[in-house]
């Protein structure tokens, strides 16, 4: 099964890339776009026969050990 993990900077942390993207979009006429923040998406495959509990446990463990720095980032498993 395909796993998608969304990683983003925590809300209180300044995300300067999003600010620049917002300025560019605004200058292109997308003036209704605001509060833009950029994150990252990590996709990976896990075997289909893995149990739901094991899946959650493995993903959480991988996020805590490497994929996410919980001082500055938060994550969400999509789908």
């Amino acid at each position: 099964m395909r796993i998608k993990i969304l990683v983003r900077l925590k809300g209180q942390i300044l995300e300067p890339q999003g600010k620049v993207i917002e300025q560019s979009l605004n200058s292109l006429g997308f003036t209704e776009f605001s509060n833009i923040r950029q994150g990252k998406l990590i996709e990976l495959d896990l075997p289909d026969n893995i149990s739901k509990e094991e899946k959650v446990q493995k993903i959480d463990s991988a996020c805590k050990k490497l994929l996410v720095n919980d001082i500055i980032e938060e994550y969400e498993v999509l789908g």
């Binding site: 900077l9 942390i13 300044l14 300067p16 890339q17 620049v20 720095n69 001082i71 500055i72």
Partner: peptide, 17 residues
């Protein structure tokens, strides 16, 4: 060192990019 956890905090993108 911050990623290892030997030091506190984290280093993020420079404010002015």
């Amino acid at each position: 060192l911050t990623e290892i956890g030997l030091l506190e905090g984290a280093l993020i993108r420079n404010k002015k990019l």
